[in-house]
Design a protein around this nucleic acid. Structure first.
Lengths: 211, 211
DNA sequence: AGCAATAAATGAACACCGTTCACAGAACGG
DNA sequence: CCGTTCTGTGAACGGTGTTCATTTATTGCT
């Protein structure tokens, strides 16, 4: 009975199409400009039809939010795979800032709009995308601590939180307070990295030429 | 001719009254819940009357934004007056975080809503409230540098920016990503402070007892 | 006091918005 | 072919910001 499968597939495709168009609208005109009526117009359906696929506007926003977060994760992935923790931290910083500045509306949607949107990312304490990505940050600082490159007496988890807050602060100040005309984000990011690292022990075994 | 003065005063008072009620609405129900019609209802005027005192809703928001920022400044002032730069930095951190967490909707309005709202704070490069308050942060790090408590080779201005970004990151993550269930904000703040400070030189001349 | 001019206030309207629901049409299973 | 189920919609409800002609109140002047 392939007929009902086809209908299911078509329904899923339409749902996907709606989300795709919605994403375009958000990225081009911002989240506030995403209206059910304009979205319906863009996908050439009546407004009421959207409610057959999504409970309401917030449901669409939530979906865009988790997908945006997955995009962010994808961007961080190569950096997270770097072996040397110092280099890794630097690359993560670079990638995070680049994502936030290149996709401002997506970043806003994920981290700066309604708390209820990002709630989905963090409620699953075990398996959620939020905690899972935090684990990436945590690992960097654990590795750094093992390498003796971490400030004394500060647990890696807390360093990771401060690090994330710092990155988020840099991005969101750049996005909101455009008059924050200090150094470019990359410079601030590298400064942040520098303050979180303890300089390598000078006379100890030379860390095997960190490359 | 005191009569026209009285009218002017009454007009200013009404304007003030409108702003006061609007502030209450924002603090109680959030910025999105501030509607011209409900505001008009609350001050017992017709909606159109509001437009005799403000160009539009954004004008009200801008005004609330600069006033909120002044509240923040007032909260920071005692901390900024502390002589010892290390203590000062700590107190500034404490005050900033407390303001952000106790007045979340005000903080959102200032730093997390439309960039056009906060634009007014930073456009006046000389005299604006934004640059003026940044000067406070700058001075801390200049004093810290003079006391040798600053990481090497990083200009105070950049440290100040990273510091602010860190504070803002902590507050805004707490406000938006409630699932960010790490350490409490005060702990993160003190960690941030710790990472920005270089430990005092142990054996060097005791820095002339920095008082 | 009465009148003209100025200022303050408003009701009604316009164009949007999210959302709901009774209804129509098509596609399906028997 | 018929009944059912699913897809889609038009119209409406209550809400939003904003505008503008019109009314109402107040003032200054004769």
């Amino acid at each position: 009975m392939g007929i009902s499968e086809r209908k299911e597939r078509q329904k899923a495709e339409l749902r996907e199409h709606i989300l795709h168009v919605a994403r375009d609208m958000v990225m081009k005109e911002g989240f506030d400009a995403l209206s059910m009526r304009k979205l319906a117009e863009a996908v050439e359906y009546a407004p009421a039809t959207l409610y057959l696929h999504f409970e309401n506007r917030d449901a669409i926003a939530r979906e865009l939010c988790v997908r945006g977060f997955q995009e962010l994760l994808a961007v961080l992935e190569p950096a997270a795979a770097v072996a040397d923790p110092v280099e890794r931290l630097s690359r993560l910083t670079e990638a995070y800032l680049a994502f936030g500045l290149k996709q401002p509306e997506t970043y806003r949607l994920i981290f700066m709009e309604d708390p209820r949107l990002s709630a989905a990312l963090f409620q699953d304490q075990q398996d959620g995308a939020g905690p899972k990505s935090f684990a990436v940050l945590l690992r960097v600082f654990e590795d750094l601590e093992a390498a003796g490159r971490t400030p004394d007496a500060i647990p890696p988890a807390r360093l990771a939180e401060v690090f994330w807050a710092g990155l988020h602060g840099i991005v969101s100040l750049k996005l909101t307070c455009s008059g924050f005309t200090g150094a470019p984000a990359e410079v601030l990011g590298q400064t942040l990295v520098a303050t979180l690292l303890r300089p390598p022990a000078l006379r100890a075994k030379p860390a095997r030429r960190p490359r």
